[in-house]
């Protein structure tokens, strides 16, 4: 069986990290299995982990009193979930719920952020990688906001 560090090495997110760093990150990680409906994260609860989704589908959700859970985005095999552990106050902003059986590597954000404070080089490496994911998600969210597939606003004047 592969160690967590070995599994991480195969993921593009961790590519080219120093072996010692990978060992450290892997050292505070564990394999986790979530059944359908299980929460990986819940809004306002302490965010002490992040996840590499190995298989399965995760919904990033928020909850509306009159509508119930509202899915903002789905995450799938290979996706990374969770950056709230990096920033105070270290609590989740959204829910993350397994939509089917999810196999994930749950990594210890809490021990990692303490290590990063002392090792800015590793901190910067991780920050760059999370920033990339954050910008990709921001970009996607912006395109979603544009509602490109929606009906255009009623055109003015004489049109076809």
């Amino acid at each position: 069986m592969k160690t967590i560090a070995e599994l991480l090495r195969e993921h593009p997110f961790f590519r080219d990290l120093a072996q010692a760093d990978l060992e450290f990150i892997g050292g505070c990680g564990e394999n986790a299995i979530y059944a359908t409906g299980d929460y990986l994260a819940r809004e306002n609860e302490p965010a002490d982990h992040f996840f590499v989704i190995r298989s399965g589908k995760v919904a990033v959700e928020t909850y509306l009193p009159d509508r119930g859970p509202l899915c903002l985005q789905t995450l799938h095999d290979g996706d990374i979930f969770g950056w709230s552990w990096l920033f105070p106050p270290y609590v989740w902003t959204f829910d993350a719920r397994a939509l089917d059986e999810v196999h994930a590597i749950r990594l210890g954000g809490k021990c990692l952020r303490e290590k990063c404070e002392g090792e800015p080089r590793l901190g910067f490496q991780l920050m760059k990688r999370f920033a990339r994911i954050a910008t990709e998600r921001l970009q996607a969210a912006r395109i979603q906001l544009l509602d490109v597939y929606g009906q255009s606003p009623p055109p003015q004047g004489d049109t076809w």
Binding site: A59, E61, P69, C71, L72, Q73, T74, H76, R97, L99, A140, I143, Q144, D147, Y149
Partner: peptide
């Protein structure tokens, strides 16, 4: 772009998948 959680596909922009 938008769906309930029982939607079997992805939620998000197509460039994601």
């Amino acid at each position: 772009d938008h769906a309930d959680s029982d939607w079997p596909g992805h939620i998000g922009v197509i460039t994601g998948p």
